[in-house]
Design a protein around this nucleic acid. Structure first.
Length: 290
DNA sequence: AGCTCGACCTGCACGC
DNA sequence: TGCGTGCAGGTCGAGC
C-alpha cells in the first residue's frame, strides 16, 4: 500500500491511539509475515507503555518505556485500524470492517482501544529492537536521508547519484539514496522536475545551481511528498487512515496510472506513456520530460 | 560493488 | 459462469 505519505498518515493515527498508553494484550495470530515475528513477540510487548510513535523511511517505530522499540512495515497491502473504546459495542457504527482472515495482529491498549493490523499479501513485517538497539538495527542501517529532513539536500542527492549508471527512476527507488519514495511518488517527482525516468542517474550529478535538473528534482521530491501528506496520502486499493478516512492525493496524480491521457502540463500536448523499468511500471510524458 | 531479476503473497480486473 | 493471465503502493537475496 504505502509510501512515505501513507505511512506518515498512519503514524499520526497510531499516535493518537497509542502514545502514553500501556499495551495490555497482544493478539498475534500468525508466526510470520514477510519475516518471522521475533521470539516472545507478544510477551515482550505486554505491559510496556508506548512513549512515542515515529517514522523512519517507510517504517513505523513505536518507542517503548524501557527504551526498546517495535518496528512495523506495511509492505504493499498492510493497514492499521484503530477501534476506539466504545465503538466495539455499537455494531453498524464502524466506518470500516475489521476482523477477517488477514487480520494478523491486534494490540489491546490500556484505554480500551484496539489497534488492528491487516495485511492480505503479508509483505509487511514487525520486529523488535531491544533497549538501545534501535540505532543500528539491521532494517534501518543503510537507509538514506529522510527526504523532508535536514540531511536531504541538493548536495546530498548529488553525491548519492554520482557514478550510478542505472536509471534515475531505479536510483530514486533505492532507499539508500533517499528513504521513503516508492513507485508513485518517484514517477510524480520526475514529472514535476521534467526529467525522463530513463535518464542515467549520474547524468544529473554535477554542478548544482538553481534551475539545474538536479535542483529541480530535489525540490520536486519534497513538494510532492508534502502535498501528498497534506492530502492524507493516496488511496488506490486499500490505504486509509487508522480511522478509516481515505486519502485523496490520487486525484492529484499527474502521470501515475494515467497511460494514454494528455500530459497535464499546460501547452505540452504530449501523452502519458507507460513502460516497465526494473520490474515496475513507470509513467511519464516523453515530450516534456527530458 | 552495482545492477537486474525473481521470489515472497493474495486479490482483483480483464479477456476468452 | 469459469478460468487463465497480468498486475498491484515493497523489499531482499541470488547471481551476473
Amino acid at each position: 500500500m504505502p509510501e512515505l505519505p501513507e505511512v506518515e498518515t498512519v503514524c499520526r493515527g497510531l499516535r493518537t491511539a497509542m502514545e502514553g498508553e500501556v499495551i495490555v494484550h497482544v493478539d498475534q495470530r500468525r508466526r510470520d509475515l514477510r519475516i518471522p515475528f521475533p521470539r516472545r513477540f507478544a510477551a515482550r510487548l505486554t505491559g510496556r507503555r508506548v512513549a512515542t510513535i515515529s517514522r523512519r523511511a517507510k517504517y513505523i517505530l513505536a518507542h517503548l518505556d524501557d527504551d526498546s522499540a517495535l518496528l512495523m512495515h506495511l509492505g504493499m497491502s498492510g493497514r492499521f485500524a484503530v477501534i476506539a473504546y466504545g465503538e466495539m459495542g455499537e455494531p453498524g457504527r464502524l466506518r470500516f470492517p475489521f476482523g477477517g482472515p488477514h487480520e494478523h495482529v491486534v494490540f489491546h491498549m490500556g484505554n480500551g482501544a484496539r489497534v488492528t493490523y491487516t495485511d492480505p499479501r503479508r509483505f509487511g513485517l514487525m520486529d523488535l529492537a531491544g533497549p538501545g538497539e534501535l540505532d543500528g538495527h539491521r532494517l534501518l542501517v543503510g537507509l538514506g536521508p529522510e527526504p523532508l529532513g535536514e540531511d536531504f539536500s541538493a548536495a546530498s542527492l548529488n553525491e548519492a547519484l554520482a557514478g550510478r549508471r542505472t536509471s534515475i527512476k531505479a536510483a530514486l527507488l533505492d532507499q539508500r539514496v533517499v528513504a521513503g519514495l516508492g513507485n508513485i511518488y518517484v514517477c510524480e517527482a520526475l514529472f514535476l522536475a521534467r526529467i525522463s525516468p530513463h535518464r542515467e542517474a549520474s547524468s544529473l550529478a554535477g554542478a548544482s545551481r538553481p534551475g539545474r535538473p538536479l535542483v529541480r528534482l530535489f525540490a520536486s521530491v519534497r513538494d510532492v511528498l508534502v502535498a501528498a501528506i497534506d492530502a492524507g496520502g493516496s488511496t488506490l486499493r486499500d490505504h486509509a487512515a487508522t480511522d478509516g478516512t481515505l486519502g485523496y492525493f490520487q486525484h492529484s496524480f499527474m502521470v501515475y496510472d494515467r497511460e494514454g491521457t494528455p500530459c497535464p502540463r499546460p501547452g505540452c500536448g504530449g501523452t502519458i506513456r507507460r513502460a516497465v523499468q526494473s520490474g515496475r511500471s513507470t509513467f511519464w510524458c516523453d515530450r516534456c520530460q527530458r
